[in-house]
Each structure stands twice: as structure tokens, then as C-alpha cells.
Amino acid sequence: MTGRIDRAVNYALLVGFSFVALYPIGGIVLAALQRPGELSGFSIPRDLHFSNFAEAWTQGHFATYLKSSLIVSVSVVVVATLLSLLAGFAFGTMKFPGHRLLFYVFLLGLMVPLEGIVIPLYYDLRALSLTDTYWALILPQIGLSLAFGTFWMRAFFMSTPRSLIEAAEIDGARNWSILWRVLVPFARPAILTMMVLIFMWTWNEFLLALVMVSSENLRTAPLGLAFFQGQHSSEATLLAAGAIIVSLPVVVTYVLLQRHFIRGMLSGAVKG
């Protein structure tokens, strides 16, 4: 009896929270499909206007922005993943002088907000003539992602059975082979999860792009959306369509990888 009540309460809570989470998203999707100029709050469109997307795409130059975002995000994800694996492996499996202190330095990267460093960073990059280039977006975000990535991979490598590493050592593997042949295939869910998270954060980064680039063809999608918003502040249907275009890649990535993502999130928490 209590089982049934429990389950009903569980479902009620889950449905409630899902509604809270989905309501604004649903609102935007519905808004994007309204006839232009007819938007009034949360309402079901009378007929579906997919043309809003085409309109937003061309007017907002989203092809350019998405290309920039893709270049930046993919570069950051690839390089940060590679470096996080190496650093996480070192911190997670080796004992070297100062490893604890060094790790705290890495953690600092997780704690200091970008807002706190973006101004000095701007001057540094300008001194290197890197502002208004892709480098200005890619390099700082690799650094920012590395703090989380190292933390994440270290936790994973620490949780892998020590005997697995020892068996490989005795089998004749050097560190490089242990990492790439034994641990990385084993760590795939955790690595994919990390990649999805870094991709999302990089894709959605706004402040850095705003400060670092001024050329239109370097603008990332969120930045482009902001400019688009400034130009079309009254055309809510177009804005909604633009917002969906910008967020779609992240949603698609997540949906495609969600099985691995959830497995990665649970690994370590639940014994396999």
C-alpha cells in the first residue's frame, strides 16, 4: 500500500519538476512557430510557421556564428580532453613531490570565476596580439576546462581498481600504454561525459566572446544571438527561433550521448 502511495508521490514530484523545467522551453518553441507579430504570451499557434527559422537563420547570420562556435568548441573539447586525461592520470595514479599542492592549484581554476580574470586576460592576450582571433576564445577556454577535466579524470582514475594498473605494469606496459590501452577504453563513459560537459560550457560561453572578439565573422552563436536580439528586439518569434537554432547543437549532442552521459555520471557513485 505504502509502495503505491510512494510511487504516486514520486511521479507527482517528477512531473512537477519536469513541468517547471520544460515550461519555458516549451514556451520558446511555441513562440518560434507563431505567425510573426502575433505573439501574446504562452499560446498555442494557430498554424505552424517554420519559415521563422529560415528567416532568423539568414537575417541573424547564424551560419557564420555556428561555424565559429563549432571551431572553438571542437578545438577546446579535443585539446582539453587530451590534456585532462594526461593530468588526471598523473594525479590519479602517481605519487610525485608536490602532487597535492599542484592539484589544489588546479582546483583554483574551478573556483575563480571567469568574470574575475577576464579583464587582465584581455590585456595579456592583446599584448600577444591574439585578441579578435579564434585563439583568444580557444586558449582561455582550454585552460578553464582543464581545471574541471583534471578534477574529473583524477577522480575516475583513483576509483579504478589499482590491480588493473599493476597488472598492466607487470605485463610490461609503460605509463603511456597503461593510459591509452588499459585505462582510456575502460574510462570511455567518464570521458564522454566530460566531453559533453566541456562542449556545453564552451558552446554557451558568452562573456569571453563578448570581450575578446569584435569581428563579426568570429562571433560565437550566443554572442551572435545577443546582437541579433539587439537588432530585432520587437520580433519575438524571430528571437525565439534564433534561440532554438543556437541551443540545438548542445541538445542534439546531449540526446545522442545521454546513455553514456548518465553512465559516466554514475560511475564511481555506484559500484558496477
Partner: peptide, 21 residues
């Protein structure tokens, strides 16, 4: 001398088989 150069082989309590191989 590191383990890999000792020319030994070890069987572990938890077997330590490489799970993805």
C-alpha cells in the same frame, strides 16, 4: 628495478583482467 623488467607474472585476487579486451 620496475615490475615490467623483473620478468615476473602475477595473478591478482580480483583477477584484474582488462575489462574492455
Amino acid at each position: 628495478i620496475p615490475p615490467r623488467e623483473r620478468d615476473i607474472a602475477m595473478v591478482f585476487q580480483d583477477y584484474a583482467l582488462y575489462p574492455q579486451m
